[in-house]
Design a protein around this nucleic acid. Sequence first.
DNA 1: TCTATATCACCC
DNA 2: AAACGGGTGATATAGA
Length: 580
Amino acid sequence: MIPATYARVWCIDFEFSHQPGGLPLPLCMVAREHRSQELVRVWLADGVQSCPIPFNKSDLIVAYYASAEIGCFLELGWSIPAVLDLYAEFRWLTCGETVPHGRGLLGAMLFHNLPTIGAEHKAEMRELALRGGPYSEDEKIDLLDYCQSDVDGLALLLQEMAHKVDWPRAVGIRGRYMIAVARMEKVGIPIDSKNLTKMIKHWEELKTDLVQAVDPDGEVYEWKDNHFVFKQDRFALMLKRMNIPWPKSDAGKLLLDEDTFRGMARCLGGKIALIHDLRRGLAEMKLNSLEVGPDERNRCMLSPFASKTGRNQPSNAKFIFGAASWLRGLIQPKKGKALAYVDWSQQEFGIAAYLSGDAKMQEAYLSGDPYLAFAKQAGAVPPDGTKETHGDIRNQYKTCVLGVQYGIGAAGLGVRLGLGECWANHLLKMHKRTFQEFWAWSDRVEAWGMLRGELESPFGWRCSFHKDPNPRSIRNWPMQSAGAEMMRLAAIYATEAGLAVCCPVHDAFLIEANTKDISEAVARMQQVMRKASEVTLPGFPLRSDANVIRYPERFGAGAPMWDRVQGLLVKLSKRKSVAV
DNA sequence: TCTATATCACCC
DNA sequence: AAACGGGTGATATAGA
């Protein structure tokens, strides 16, 4: 059951209010000690509060979605004890299964057939907390009671789950990672919010400008509910007028996906090409839901352990790294600060090389340019060839390598390369011939996953593949989940070392430091990332690359769409000042 | 008019 | 039957 090393085990919950993009404002806390049943209830919103429980090394706190609780600890300046997060453990337990009542505390309780009394006015209480203060005495009691009801539920859940928990990893990795998550969520990402405000304000004008440059008569785009929408039927009429045959789906609908559109635009040029650019540009230009706090930082839930592979899956609408990449120009360090985007080089390729034990693949990784190395190993590029002399062929081998990691077939690779299935087949054959050990391993993974219906990653993250198993998903899972484990370790090491980590991005981190300290911060980050990779893949550390952005530089320099939009904004503000 | 579903765009 | 993994979210369309 619960390891005896923990003298006291506190089920704990906070209620807090918070603005989108802002930091949590703790309202109250309830904690109950598992063995003694000692109950602590504190109201926190009326001034400075020191921690009512003298936490030390022999305390364990148990929470559901602990990053929220730890976020409150951080705001209150309390020291943080060891953490068991039953959300992370519930995800671990049921990963790959569809759970009937969701991933929340109630869902986990219902999953374990626990009674969920007092759950009926959850929404009401959540609203009350979100509303923020001041609160009447009755409201304070309501919130504390509600908070306590969650703690009672949590205690039941702990009782039920304790014997299933892999304690060393649950506390030592996953709980510890939830602390790192809280720290990263607190740091957040500096945003050029003036620019963001401008973009939001002139949004429709920007869009109108972009649309009208291409479709002045509104032949394809319709003005509806205050904005332009691409209308398929109008586009079909235009194609008819222009006598253009267009690929259709089996159901007879126009195929408007990027590949088809790109192909048609390339062949036809003219208005089709312009509309293609426009569609690409307009896509995902949604900025209203981006969560930017009053201190001009993008903060949102990082949604740890959300995917089957254990990756974080923050909301694409709320998280700047979820938006189209040209919008990263909005990421800008404040005066005197610098940012660095540090990512593992060819992370999944390196993981595959290690896990499969394929010597050729390891050699290719160690060469520094796995794609070129593969092309050389396959005899497609001479030993003295370089990225510069054999760029095109290297790109083909690169696409092949990346595709294989996702389980691509010859047909898919052919389309992707635009070179046909026959050539794609040749590339895949070269991959299989060159990396024989990798393929033998991958075959074993598929067989094992299919037969056993479950896979496990280096530190015990697991996933069930019982329902509708997809062989390509099974083959990819070990690489992606090991990547996620490595990322968790690096996040733990980095935040515990005091580095200001703004956020994780699957195989990368954004960090922040004073401009004069950024080089050292990058070096330390690269060091912890190397350590995390070597702990995950003993004897096979992975390299990382770093991209440093110093004030007043901004992220993602050179994105054409960014420059175009900025140019339009200048034009718009000039037009405004002339009108005035 | 609202909701469910399909399709597609973006991210790593 | 098709065959590119893990995701979130917007939009169009169909159906109630």
